[in-house]
Amino acid sequence: MLEPQPVGIPVPNPSPASKPYWEGAARGELLYQRCDDCGTIALRPGTVCGSCLGRNLSWPRSAGLGSLYSWTVVWRPQQPAFRVPYAPAIVALDEGFRMMSAVVGCEPEELRADLPLAVEFHPASDDISLPYFRPRT
């Protein structure tokens, strides 16, 4: 069974631009950065919209529903803190953006393209919660 990683793995070090994202994650909310002028969703948090160069960027909340775009199942851990197997995945969110995460709550062989997924959060340290995705029916 694929499970969330235990506390003790390396944790993210938020940047000024990404701080709202991690604050949202700590509250159990998945946020994404969007340009209020043209609607473009950022590939990574920044200070300017790559499409229209607008500065009116906001952090709407995602419903956390999406599908599996691509994945791998790791059997050789990056370092011993990670428990194998784990399944890093690219998730396509219904709002139209993609993000790096990992799938939990199913067996590795159940992973397939377009598998419907829903976000959930698990603590990685006292301050940081990581979004994971679980198959939904």
């Binding site: 990683q5 793995i9 390396p10 944790v11 993210p12 070090n13 938020p14 940047s15 990404s18 991690w22 990574r44 691509s70 994945w71 791998t72 790791v74 050789r76 851990p77 990056q78 370092q79 990670f82 784990y86 890093p88 995945a89 690219i90 993000m99 790096m100 995460s101 990992a102 990685a124 940081i128 990581l130």
Partner: peptide, 16 residues
């Protein structure tokens, strides 16, 4: 910050 918590390394990134 967006990959470190998921245990990615080169092989996993390319596998995607």
């Amino acid at each position: 910050e967006f990959v470190v918590g998921y245990g990615l390394f080169t092989a996993a990134e390319f596998a995607l």
